[in-house]
Amino acid sequence: MKNLTNRSKIVSNKKMSFRERIYFPAILGGMRITFGHLFRRKTTVQYPEVTREFSDIYRGKHVLKRDDEGRERCTACGLCAVACPAEAITMVSAERKPGEEHLYREEKYAIVYEINMLRCIFCGDCEEACPKEAIFLTPEIVKSEYQRDRFIYGKDVLVEPADPAKRVDVSKRQTAKVLEFKKDKRYKHNK
């Protein structure tokens, strides 16, 4: 069998030489190694003070985007729910009433939009499937909770704030290349 690395050692049950049997050289060698580790740089990230750097396109908690006028983009087409491999997304659609044009961009919108964060595997397929650029994953992590039902995130958590100053920036993940990819009709979900 070919070795994958050159570091592997053939294990055998051969009789130990005297040098090996008196243990001490081996013990001293081991102690030298551990002593060297005393002065190594520590790998711990001191969490509350220091946070680990996240990738720009880290797949964390979802956000439902609004458009530039502050209207919800989601049209409750259900493509995200279909694309979801963990079946974490459910929604109930409703028709936009007259006078609600400043709230919802499309004539149909999601009156209920829930993601079960216990089921979600943060694959980002929903983001990829969305034809309206409405759902995105953000580098924010999902907080721990004491009750399971708290993990079912509704629209109150998911929809981004209407205040332009508090919008969630997704420009890092919505690059020109991504937009190009989403228009590619060769892929099934872009049709």
Binding site: L38, K42, T43, T44
Partner: peptide, 8 residues
């Protein structure tokens, strides 16, 4: 123990 294992 921490120092030996590259921890604090």
């Amino acid at each position: 123990a921490g120092w030996f294992q590259d921890r604090h």
